[in-house]
Design a protein around this nucleic acid. Sequence first.
DNA 1: CATTTAGTTCAAATTCTCTTGAACTTTGTG
DNA 2: CACAAAGTTCAAGAGAATTTGAACTAAATG
Lengths: 170, 170
Amino acid sequence: MVSTADREDWAVLDECERGVIELFVSVADVLGFPRSLGEIYGLAYISPLPIHLAEVCGRLSLSKGSASQGLRTLRDLGALKPVYVPGDRRDYFEPEIKIRVLLYQLLSERLRPHLDRSAGALEELDESARRCSPALAPETAKFRRERVELLGAWRKRVSTVLPIVQRILK
Amino acid sequence: MVSTADREDWAVLDECERGVIELFVSVADVLGFPRSLGEIYGLAYISPLPIHLAEVCGRLSLSKGSASQGLRTLRDLGALKPVYVPGDRRDYFEPEIKIRVLLYQLLSERLRPHLDRSAGALEELDESARRCSPALAPETAKFRRERVELLGAWRKRVSTVLPIVQRILK
DNA sequence: CATTTAGTTCAAATTCTCTTGAACTTTGTG
DNA sequence: CACAAAGTTCAAGAGAATTTGAACTAAATG
């Protein structure tokens, strides 16, 4: 084995690469994702070939731990897709570049689970409202029941609109 | 003035109120807002009367600083609306409860500014790509120009879809 | 089967965000 | 005009989220 085997030196990011990565970092920020996710996706996006762990560490100066976690999260989100490279043991990834798919998966992974959880929470809330009612002035109890009902209506509305939005993105 | 003037004791939240507030805390979480915003909006949402600063501090055990900031942020987002109460110097707020309006304002305040900023960033990127081209293999330079162009297409697409979504929420 | 390489895991450290609380401004009251 | 009440501001503290790095597992190689 050559002496430089485990300490490959990766090319420093040029202006254009930095710009693209910066843009994705700001997108990650808006979406509430950690900076490193934006960096990794950005690198994948502007790289002509699939990327792999060591490259991410080397070119972005991220620790192996961060890079590994980041790659996994992005794969789980569907933002990076595994690519099989024959004769190479490393895991390569290329970016999903269809905005429709990206947004669809984002909505599915983030909003949908919350909507599902809240369905259960709303039922419990309904019971809570009922349980608390006797201790309250009748008009207060009524007001609360209405507000809790409204929450249910909101949930329904968002649940209905979500698939439509996803379809529009087509 | 009575001795208890500045140390009013507010009713402890009952089960139903806690439940509603908890739900909004989880919404805030999904949207990447601080917990306190969820709590304050939740309190306003389940309160039959407009709320004010001291009430927020007292019932949610938040500091005056947090409450003040939180109320302002929610007002800026359009999630809380100022209510004038004659003969009372305090600032009262009631919640915006039209989901359409809430979501519309959320999209406008969060996504729109980012889209606008990115328009400028993309132009610069385009120049960057051009500047970096001479130093690259022709096919790499071409690949980059395409990817940068694609970013522009994404932005356009999202900019187009956003108003449509807002209209659907009608 | 010992060694090397790819990748994962997780506790500790770091960094960043949010909250607190005290000082301050402003406005109303006697 | 002194005082009280409402609200703001912001530096410092507390807390949460992210990143690191070292120890680990798994798989390939000779």
